[in-house]
Write a protein that binds this DNA or RNA. Structure first.
Lengths: 350, 350
DNA sequence: TTGTAGGCGTTATCAC
DNA sequence: GTGATAACGCCTACAA
């Protein structure tokens, strides 16, 4: 029942050649079709319910209009905010977004990048979930190289526009979040409010984002006369944050701590829930801070101190980078700053 | 620099014909290539970094492996939860998801559906944002037909698997949320807790989902001896809910009301924020309920009473429907129930 | 089991 | 300006 009308049908119906029909419909650069004929072709197309086959066009033109988007988890508010911006920007550029979720699995990541390659996508944006596993194994021998890095640079070499969001990827255009700067600023801000002894809700050891935030926070805290006296390492999720706080509480270290700092917002929210479940008041019994600035935060009480990351901007810039001239964008790392937002979960201590 | 190695290159390198190379690599149904040759071809492909061109394959096979997903706004927790399920299910079926956001604009919706058609997508899932505008204009003359309905049925006729999420679309496989049932159940539950006089935070008039929830709630409330004594109509968003509560408060009607019921969760959250901003305590000064059951709710205090919609299930079933045999799925409407979840925002009154 | 050749729907390079 | 016609990269009867 499919009315597979092709351009040939339209051409015949309009009484012109295939070539003319093609030109009349897409009005390519060599605009040279008589208006009268254009009208006739358009009318024929209309009458026949013609719809150009994007697949065939892509093949004939030798390029697609697909932008691959790889995120860890589209249900995560951080990534969905980024995705939203990516989709809008890509659409404005006339590109379709092909969405895939890596589910934080390097193997899936590789498979999806291969898919991007097979799709002959024009560009790909990959956000989050960078793991330092491969690098770590090599013990720093060649930290600039990992499976992901290799796959991305390979793609770039084949003419696919590539951009990474979050952690910069060596040799690949990246829009990098200044996790270290933000974490240090957070430490300073908390120190400024009188906090000295911190507990850290850390993410997985191989998670670069968590590592950067943790290390920078610790360094800044110490430099400012404070200290990180406890740390729990759990998954980078709500449940992880919940679990982390439970462990801190069970270990009885909360009493020795001025504030609990989570390496991302959803962990902080999980910790907040865990605190509530234990009848611990925030900030009464413990102060709490997160990292990210996800929109969910507007609904929680007390207001959660965090480091706001401009997620929309990340998405927009990544698409622009991915679509830019590879010659000039390769190896570009656009740093985007993040701002400490102090709220009621970490009131001044004095 | 693109190493545009084609299957021909591989075939030549392996010393076999194009056909054999093709069979060896995709192992199609007519599996008939000698293992030895398969190995040789695979080795050649490997050596040449061959990557099959999905575009060409799609064209030769006459079908793509693309599933179009249209949502109102991917940053909305309701839709991102659905999208997450759709992506996972589609991937399990070997399909790529092409994501687009309608931004609640019927014109965009139409354009995106046309894009789906040009892409020759194998299936399309459309979630949310159904507007009754077109139907309303016709004054019920032919309520079963609207621009969206027409576009979707046209797609279906061309062999594209179609499924709608939320509101059923006439003639199209749909997985429908039982908004009326859920709203009625919510009304009953609130009546059961002693609430009688309600204020409604309603969505736009032409929004089918809002309308169904509102109407059913009102009917059930009245049937149970209660009443809806006030209603504010605002956008179906957080800001809309905020604004709605502000208006109720400014109008001074909150005193005459036992509970405020929002037609969706994000509106309820906005209302909650507005209440806080006015130093109104929930549930002390006003009881509040929402609709949807988005995951964000786990982080708000007090726990928000809502009607939980199984978002994951919606996504999974929609993909299954869209991929099912059109002959049997056409016009299928799978109702999915939703469950009232009573929480602290609407404590028993007596 | 393997190879030959035609075709998928467009675009683009040529002549005319 | 317009029209043949060769690609584009792959699949798949049909033959061998």
């Amino acid at each position: 029942m499919r009315d597979r009308t092709t351009l040939s049908d339209v051409a015949r119906e309009a009484g012109v050649s295939l070539a003319t029909a093609s030109r009349a419909i897409n009005g390519s650069a060599d605009r040279s079709v008589r208006p009268e004929l254009v009208a006739r072709v358009r009318a024929a197309a209309e009458a026949l319910h013609y719809s150009p086959d994007a697949t065939a066009q892509a093949m004939a033109r030798g390029r697609t209009t697909t932008l691959g988007l790889l995120v860890h988890d589209i249900a995560d508010p951080y990534f969905s905010a980024i995705a939203s911006a990516v989709v809008r920007t890509a659409e404005a550029e006339g590109l379709q977004v092909s969405l895939a979720t890596t589910q934080n699995d390097p193997a899936r990541e590789a498979a999806l990048l291969d898919l991007v390659r097979r799709q002959r996508a024009r560009a790909v944006v990959i956000a989050g979930g960078r793991s330092a596993g491969a690098d770590a194994e090599r013990d720093g021998a060649d930290p600039a190289s990992s499976a992901l890095t290799d796959a991305l640079t390979a793609l770039a070499r084949q003419g696919v526009g590539v951009a990474a969001i979050g952690q910069p990827v060596p040799g690949v255009a990246s829009v990098a979040v200044d996790n270290a700067g933000g974490a240090a600023a957070l430490a300073d801000a908390l120190l400024g409010r009188g906090y000295r002894r911190f507990a850290l809700l850390d993410g997985p050891a191989d998670r670069v984002t968590a590592r950067d935030r943790r290390d920078a926070f610790e360094a800044a805290a110490r430099a400012g006369g404070g200290d990180v006296v406890a740390r729990e390492r759990t998954p980078f999720t709500w449940e992880g944050g919940h679990e982390g706080l439970d462990r801190l509480a069970d270990a009885g270290v909360l009493a020795e701590v001025d504030a609990v700092v989570a390496t991302n917002d959803v962990m902080a929210l999980g910790a907040l829930a865990a605190a509530r479940a234990r009848d611990l008041s925030v900030p009464g019994d413990l102060a709490l801070a997160g990292f990210g600035g996800i929109s969910t935060l507007r609904d929680v009480v007390p207001g959660l101190t965090t480091v706001a990351v401009p997620m929309e901007e990340l998405g927009v810039r990544a698409v622009r980078l991915a679509l830019g001239d590879p010659a000039t964008t390769r190896d570009v790392v656009e740093q985007v700053g993040c701002d400490v937002v102090l709220r009621d979960s970490t009131p001044p201590l004095d």
